[in-house]
Structure formats: structure tokens, C-alpha cells
Design a protein around this nucleic acid. Structure first.
Length: 815
RNA sequence: GGGCGCUUAGCUCAGUUGGUUAGAGCGCUUCGUUUACACCGAAGAGGGCGGGGGUUCGAGUCCCUCAGCGCCCACCA
């Protein structure tokens, strides 16, 4: 099969994708005994729209998959979909403009499933079009039965190991989503806020206290001052009267109260922030719940009961002003903690939730983090810092609907937990009953109606991928660390951390040996000029692929190294498209000489140019391989590009052309051999990045000789030590410089590069140098288009001097 | 407040363990249809590597320091 004149990615790419699918190119071989390479790639969560950030980091995983596959590993590269949980729920609520509560549990779940399926199709279509070399037979969905079974089993295992507990306690709460959330679900948001100073009352006198949250006055249970604050020294232990609400609260001294802030006295409410929670615990204070789980004020707020938080704050302030109890207010920039899924400020309210014990094992998790190889290495710090700063156990229960249910019921008599049996999993406790008696003899139970945090399930992806407990999968079960986790940096604190937790608790092992952390793709809009000059933001991934090709988009994704954020750049994608085209054209040029050719065992006689390019090739093979092993795909890509374009295409081919065109001549075999080797190896090295064009070239020129059905199943290049020749590489530089000197002459004189010059004189007193130049006569003549080359010991008068390189003088004869 | 990363041509980025005149792509200038390619080729212009100090025969490359940007974490009455 020959190469067509033009390479059209829009038709070829889908054709190749079908071919790979039909010939099961990316299948993991379950029977094969070769070393496996198992990839734990993020199951994307339903987000509503796909962007190039997805393409960016998933491409990186695919580079590794393809590299290791060509290196003989039996690669298992599955895809998953994290369809359960709040992201899907939020999306459904947004789309239908209706809350889950209003829709009803079963209808809502139905809608979530529908949206999940649609989103998954969209993802799968994109992944396939991008040519991720996924084995789609192993796809998992976090809402599927077998995944729910594993997730519930995980719960039961943790329960039996006493690593999980249920407790009624202050919990981080999202009033918008009306569920408990975990520390990891919280992020910061900066906003304008009003810091007001209120008059508390001490023995008939005003006692000013500043706060941003006057609506919490009904929940005020104490006031704290710093023990060293002279203003308050004699007031400690006395009682204050809370404005408007009238309850009496004690003044307590605690070093955490900062004399510099506000009036130095701070009210403690149950609960305004984590400090309040800590004080409440330490001093065993009263509990007054001012805010209910739906984000409205409770009866404790008296006339303000039922108002939402913002309205209550405003109303209470107005009332305070009216009563002359609000001294003054100032505007401040305040950082508030918000639920990252909806940006709603979180509250701390007392509820019963399930927690996984993580605080007591921080040290172990830090140790495990140190044992993982992080790429880039500094991502390890990010993990460590998160673990060190953890201050809550992992709350895994959510008062939501679409997710994995807890496999438990509570006895209506003694409230003891009844676990489902492993054989019953997956189970929805709302839909069934234990069918056996509680240890107290009672046979009536209430189900746990919550669902699990989505991370409680996705933290098991190494086990899902490893087919934990599935007899239908591999022989045996894979619990040992799998090869690699690829993910972006923002979910180190969630996905990476929780995965380490689960593997530790279930198997006392690491989940994976290596974590490769990608950065983000950033929109160019923030950086000014680019978006202005090109108009508008980045294209959606599918449009980008359609406009330029999947290979071109992948090229962009390979252009910024692991861990770094990449600006989305159409220019960069375009450069990828040009590279694809160049690869095609070089191959079309080569086709004429190597289509029927198969190099023999014996290396033919090589010209200096042949030796130069072949030695350079060995160096590229070696360095590309080394860099790929340390996940530095970006260096590999750029090194290949320079070698291919600047050295092979721009210079070597010009040096070899004469010998190639002439056919049977003493230099022909060498040129053909070098061209064959260089091109075959280059397309193999490019294959992980540009799977389509390299495959098409391989099918056209090389597969017949190599006997592999796909370049992606062919072996990765290995360097040939006999072809390594440092002096040839040095001399290659000289050849290039001679070419440049002549090209400059033509350029300066407005001559075409094809213009035939009569004679070139190369003069040097160095005998060995002259000998080499003699061997390279045809190489030089070919690239310079000079009819004759005179090699002399010294220059003569009346020559046009073009360049001097060391002892070598390059002169033009008689023009 | 703590941590991490970044700061190299107009733009987007490479610059290995410190070593000759700092690189690429895009953009720009001039020129050019050579039996692969105008999605091309050639020749150029353009930066002295954020500021300052130091180590060294020699530093984008190591050390100190300052500044700006970004991210993470903490605080956030």
C-alpha cells in the first residue's frame, strides 16, 4: 500500500480508529505472563461540558500507555466513569431547574442515571476520537452493581476493622446541597463582608464585641478574651448579656483570642467556625443550634426563625441599629469557606454522620506518600501538606440520593447497626430488610438512607481496575501496588489521598508505585493579547480535533511537561498539524527508495552524512527512552521534533538526495539504509504522541517487513551500538555549516537554492580532515548543488571566501 | 502566616549533572517553485536569561536576598 499524495487526517484518523478497534490492538492479554503495566486513570465526573483540560491530562496517560506497550509490557488501560455523587446531582438539578427534594428520590435517581449515560457517551466518543489506547472491555462505572458491591464491601471491611464510626457531632454542612461534606470538599472564597461592633451588656454598661455574623447571636454561648489582654483582666469569669436575645454568657480567657482583632473580645457561637467548635469542646459549652440543616434560622432565633441566613443577618443588623446596639461597621475583605461544588458558605451543624478514622493515622499516610514516586517530585509536598493539616476525620455520609448506599440498617429497639451480608451486596437498605434478627432479638430495622461520598467509591479505582474479588477477570486478584496513577494536581487531596487511605486500610499496601501528576490547561483569555488577536476563547476539544486532527491536539498536550499548566494555544496545535504533514511528506519522499527495501544484516558502506544521521539517531533513541522512563514526554517530543525536522529533513535528506536519485551507485545502499533506519525509528518514537500518522506511514512502508499488525504493537527502538560514532556527529556539524555557507551565498545573491554553482574549494592543512571531506564529496555536492568540489591544502587568490570553520576555508571558485 | 512552583526573544515555551558566539515554534524582514512538502525551503533581525549580592577560571544553570505572578494550605471574631 503506497502513501497518498496528501494526508487527510479527517478521513484517515477515524479509519485507523476503526482498524484498531476491529483488530483489538489495545487489548490487555489476561493470559499473558509478561509483566503488566496497569494504569489507574481518573474516572471523569459528569461536569456538563468537556474542555481541553480533560484532553490535556488524559493524553499524558495515553503517552505512557503507548510507550510501555511498545516496550513489551502487557498494558491494562481501562477507563471508568464516576457518575454517582454530587456532580451529577448538581448537573441534573441545574438542567431541570428543580431540586432533588422537589423531584422525589426515585424520579431524581432516574434522571441522574439518564444524564450519566448521556455524559458517558460524550466522553467515550471524545476519548475514542482522541485515540486513547484504552481497552474498553474493562470500563467501569461507579454506579454499576459490581462497583457498588466493592464499595459496600469496603465499608463493611472498614467497619469490622473499627476504622469507621458513626457519631453525632458538629459537621461541615452545605446548606445549599443540604448534606454533610468533608474537609476536602471545602475551598476558600474571598468576598466583601461587614465587620460590625455590637454592644453586649456587662452590669448595665456596654461591652463592645465585633463580628461578621450577627445572625449567630442567638447561638452565642460564651465570649473569649486573651488572658494577657489588660482591658479585660478583671472581667474574666463574669457574665455578659447578649444583645436582642438576652441570654447570659460567660467571659472566658483563652490565648486563641487575638487582642488585635476587633475589640479583642470574640463571641463563641455554636457554630460560626472551627474555632467555635474547638472552644465548645474544650470548655464544654452549651449547644444552641441557630441554623437548621436547610440553611434557615431555627426557633432559637425568635422572631427571625425561618429566615435564610442572609436575610436573618440583614434583619438582625437592622434591629440592632434600631435598638442602638450596633456601634459601627467596617467593610472587610473576608475569606469564607465554601462548598466547592456550589460555592455556598458552609455551616457547622450537629448531625449524625459516618466517619473514616484518618486523623489517628496521619503518620502512616505521610509515610505511604513518601514511598510513592511522584512526578514531578514536588507534588509529594502538596500531598504531605494536606495530610499534615487534616483536622477532621473523613465524613463519608451524604444526605443525598444518587450514589452508593450504606449496606446497613439500624435496629429499632437497641439502635445497633446491622450489616448486610457480603453475599447480599450490593444492597439498597431502603428497598430491603436484613431478614434476620438483631442481637437484641428484635426483627425490625430502619434503613440508613444516606449515600456515600463519591470519593469513598472512587478511592477504590486501583481495586476496581485490578478486579478485586471478580472471578471473571484475571486469574487471581491484584492487590499489590499497580503501575501508575495519572491525575491532575487539584485532586491530590481527595482522590490520591483517599486512595492511599483505602489501600492502607484494606491491604496494608500502597495503591500504586508511581503518581504522575498533570497540570491544567488554562484558557488564554486571561493573558490578554492572544485571545484578542485570535478572537474568543479556546475551542471545545471536539472542534479542535475536527479542525486540526487528533494528532495535532495530542501534540499540543505533549508540549508542556508533566505537572505544569499549559496555555491553550491554537498556534501550538497548528504546529502539530504541520509536523504531521511534514512526517507524511518525508515518508512520501522516502517511499520511492525504501518501499520494496528490507535492510540486510550487514551494514552497507556509509558516507559521512549517513554515519552522522545514524549516530544522531542512536543518541535520540537512547535519550528519548530515558526521558520517557521518567515521564518527561515533553522533552522526548521536542528532541524528536528537532532531530526529525532540522537534522533529518532539512539537512540529511539534501545530502543524500543525489545518491538516492541516481539509483545504483556506490553511495546508494548507504543512503537507503540510513533513510530507512532513520524514518522507521522516528515514526516509532513519535507513535505515542501521533498515533495516527505514524500508523498510516508504518502500514504503507514498514509493516510488511516488520510483521506487526500495528506500529503500536511493534517494539520500541533500541540503539545499535555499532552505529554510534561521535566523530561522525562532529563532522556532520561541519557538513551542515558548509551547506549554510553556500545557502547564505545564494540567499544574499538572490539565487534559488537549486542554482548550480560551478566549483567549491575546501581548503585545510589537516590531512585527516581532507580525507573526510573527500569521503563526503557527494554529500556536499548534493546539498550545495555544486558541480565540482576541490579539496586543497590551502586557499588561492581570487576566490570568493564564504566561511571559515576552524582550519577549514570554504571558497567559491569563479562565479 | 507556611509551603510549592514560576519569572529566558513580541507571544507560547525548551534549556540535562554549571563550560565554547543562550534554543524552538509562532510572529517579523528579505529571498527562493530544488524529481517529499508553499501546511515548504533558505538567509536574517530580535533576548543576555525578574532585581541585587555571592561561590567559581567560568552561572539561566549552585548559594543568599528582594520583588512580582500562580497554586496549595492555614487564618479568616
Amino acid at each position: 500500500m503506497g502513501l497518498t499524495k496528501r494526508y487527510n487526517p479527517h478521513t484517515i484518523e477515524p479509519q485507523l480508529q476503526s482498524m484498531w478497534r476491529d483488530s483489538m490492538t489495545y487489548y490487555f492479554n489476561q493470559k499473558q505472563s509478561e509483566e503488566t503495566y496497569i494504569i489507574d486513570t481518573p474516572p471523569p465526573t459528569v461536569s456538563g461540558h468537556l474542555h481541553l483540560g480533560h484532553v490535556y491530562s488524559y493524553s499524558h496517560a495515553d503517552f505512557f500507555a503507548r510507550f510501555w506497550r511498545m516496550n513489551g509490557r502487557n498494558v491494562l488501560y481501562p477507563m471508568g466513569f464516576d457518575d454517582n455523587g454530587l456532580p451529577t446531582e448538581r448537573l441534573v438539578e441545574r438542567r431541570l431547574k428543580m431540586s432533588a427534594r422537589d423531584m422525589g428520590r426515585s424520579e431524581f435517581i432516574k434522571q441522574c442515571q439518564k444524564v450519566s449515560v448521556e455524559a458517558e457517551i460524550e466522553y467515550e466518543t471524545l476519548w475514542k476520537r482522541l485515540a486513547l489506547s484504552v481497552d474498553w472491555r474493562f470500563t467501569y462505572r461507579t454506579i454499576d452493581d459490581d462497583v457498588r458491591r466493592i464499595s459496600q464491601l469496603s465499608f463493611i471491611d472498614l467497619f469490622k476493622k473499627n476504622l469507621i464510626y458513626r457519631k453525632r457531632a458538629p459537621t461541615i454542612w452545605c446548606p445549599e446541597c443540604r448534606t454533610a461534606i468533608s474537609q476536602a470538599d471545602v475551598s476558600d472564597m474571598s468576598r466583601e463582608s461587614e465587620f460590625v461592633t455590637l454592644s453586649f451588656e456587662l452590669d448595665g454598661h456596654s461591652f463592645p464585641i465585633a463580628t461578621t455574623r450577627p445572625e449567630l447571636l442567638p447561638a452565642c454561648v460564651a465570649v473569649f478574651v486573651n488572658p494577657d489582654d489588660e482591658r479585660y483582666g478583671d472581667m474574666i469569669g463574669r457574665m455578659l448579656r447578649v444583645p436582642l436575645f438576652g441570654q447570659q454568657v460567660k467571659i472566658i480567657a483563652d490565648p486563641a483570642a487575638d487582642p488585635e482583632v476587633g475589640t479583642g473580645a470574640v463571641m463563641c457561637c455554636t457554630f460560626g467556625d472551627t474555632m467555635d467548635v474547638a472552644w465548645w469542646r474544650t470548655y464544654d459549652l452549651n449547644l444552641i443550634e441557630a441554623i437548621s440543616s436547610d440553611g434557615t434560622m431555627t426557633d432559637s432565633a425568635g422572631e427571625f426563625a425561618g429566615m435564610d441566613i442572609t436575610t436573618a443577618r440583614r434583619s438582625i443588623k437592622e434591629k440592632l441599629i434600631g435598638a442602638g446596639l450596633l456601634d459601627h461597621k467596617i467593610s472587610i475583605e473576608q475569606n469564607v469557606r465554601v462548598h466547592e461544588r456550589c460555592d455556598t458558605p458552609v455551616e457547622y451543624i450537629v448531625t449524625s454522620q459516618w466517619f473514616v478514622r484518618i486523623l489517628e493515622n496521619k503518620e502512616k499516610f505521610l509515610e505511604n506518600g513518601r514511598q510513592v514516586d511522584w512526578y514531578p517530585a514536588h507534588m509529594k509536598n502538596r500531598y504531605a501538606q494536606w495530610v499534615e493539616n487534616l483536622s477532621w476525620d473523613w465524613c463519608i455520609s451524604r444526605q443525598r440520593y444518587y450514589g452508593v448506599t450504606f449496606p446497613i440498617w439500624y435496629c429499632t429497639e437497641c439502635e445497633e447497626v446491622m450489616l448486610a451480608l457480603e453475599s447480599e451486596l450490593p444492597v439498597d437498605p431502603v428497598e430491603s430488610q436484613p431478614g434476620r434478627n438483631c442481637s437484641c432479638g428484635n426483627d425490625s430495622f430502619t434503613p440508613d438512607r444516606d449515600i456515600m461520598d463519591t470519593w469513598a467509591t472512587s478511592s477504590l479505582t486501583p481495586q476496581l481496575v485490578g478486579r478485586w474479588l471478580q472471578k471473571s477477570g484475571f486469574d487471581g486478584q491484584i492487590f499489590e501496588p499497580i503501575s501508575i496513577r495519572t491525575q491532575a494536581h487539584e485532586i491530590i487531596r481527595t482522590w490520591a489521598f483517599y486512595t492511599i487511605v483505602k489501600s492502607q486500610y484494606h491491604f496494608n499496601s500502597l495503591p500504586w508505585k508511581t503518581a504522575a501528576i498533570s497540570g491544567w490547561a488554562l484558557s488564554p483569555s486571561g493573558s490578554g493579547k492572544i485571545s484578542k488577536s485570535k478572537g474568543g476563547g479556546p475551542l471545545p476539544p471536539m472542534e479542535m480535533i475536527e479542525r486540526y486532527s487528533a494528532d495535532a491536539v495530542r501534540y499540543w498536550a505533549a508540549s508542556t511537561s508533566l505537572g505544569k499548566d499549559a496555555i491553550i494555544s491554537q498556534e501550538r496545535v497548528q504546529a502539530g498539524a504541520k509536523l504531521v504533514n511534514k512526517l507524511w511528506n518525508v515518508s512520501r519522499f522516502a517511499q520511492r527508495f525504501i518501499a520494496e527495501y528490507q535492510p540486510g544484516k550487514k551494514i552497507p558502506e556509509l558516507s559521512p552524512a549517513d554515519r552522522w544521521i545514524l549516530s544522531g539517531l542512536q543518541e535520540v533513541i537512547e535519550q528519548a527512552t530515558e526521558n520517557f522512563r521518567t515521564f518527561d514526554y515533553a522533552t522526548v517530543k521536542s528532541m524528536l521534533e528537532i532531530f526529525f525536522w532540522n537534522e533529518l529533513a532539512d539537512n540529511y535528506l539534501e545530502m543524500a538526495k543525489q545518491r538516492l536519485y541516481e539509483g545504483e551507485n556506490p553511495g546508494f545502499d548507504g543512503a537507503r539504509f540510513a533513510l530507512f533506519q532513520a524514518l522507521l525509528n522516528i515514526i516509532k518514537l513519535f507513535a505515542p504522541f501521533l498515533p495516527h500518522v505514524t500508523e498510516q506511514i508504518y502500514q504503507g512502508l514498514f509493516s510488511r517487513g516488520e510483521h506487526f499488525k500495528s506500529i503500536h504493537l511493534s517494539p520500541w527502538p533500541e540503539k545499535e551500538p555499532v552505529l554510534i560514532d561521535p566523530s561522525a556527529q562532529e563532522f556532520g556539524q561541519v557538513l551542515t555549516q558548509i551547506a549554510t555557507a553556500v545557502r547564505r551565498y545564494k540567499s544574499d545573491n538572490g539565487l534559488s537554492l537549486g542554482f548550480e554553482l560551478n566549483a567549491l574549494q575546501l581548503a585545510t592543512p589537516d590531512t585527516d580532515f581532507r580525507d573526510l571531506l573527500g569521503q563526503a564529496q557527494r554529500d556536499i555536492a548534493s546539498i550545495t548543488r555544486v558541480k565540482s568540489i576541490n579539496i586543497d591544502t590551502k586557499t588561492y587568490p581570487n576566490l570568493t571566501e564564504l566561511e571559515t570553520i576552524g582550519s577549514l576555508h570554504i571558497n567559491l571558485v569563479g562565479e
